[in-house]
C-alpha cells in the first residue's frame, strides 16, 4: 500500500515539474523571438519576421 503513497508524491512532483518546464520554455522562446521593447531596436529586428 505504501506504493500508493510514492505514487501520490510522484504524480504531484512530476506534473508540477513538467508544467514548470513548459511555462519556462514558452517564456524563454517568446522572449527570444521578440525584440526587447526599445524603440530604436525595432527597425533592424524586422528581418526576424519571415
Amino acid at each position: 500500500m505504501s506504493g500508493l503513497i510514492d505514487a501520490g508524491y510522484s504524480v504531484v512532483l512530476v506534473s508540477v515539474a513538467a508544467y514548470s518546464a513548459a511555462v519556462v520554455y514558452r517564456h524563454r522562446s517568446l522572449a527570444r523571438s521578440l525584440p526587447p521593447p526599445t524603440p530604436d531596436a525595432e527597425p533592424e529586428e524586422e528581418g526576424e519576421w519571415q
Partner: peptide
C-alpha cells in the same frame, strides 16, 4: 486542482 483530485484519489484508495 487537478492534482488535488488525483493525489486525493490515491490517498483515498490507500
Amino acid at each position: 486542482c487537478g492534482l488535488t483530485l488525483v493525489s486525493g484519489s490515491i490517498w483515498g484508495k490507500a
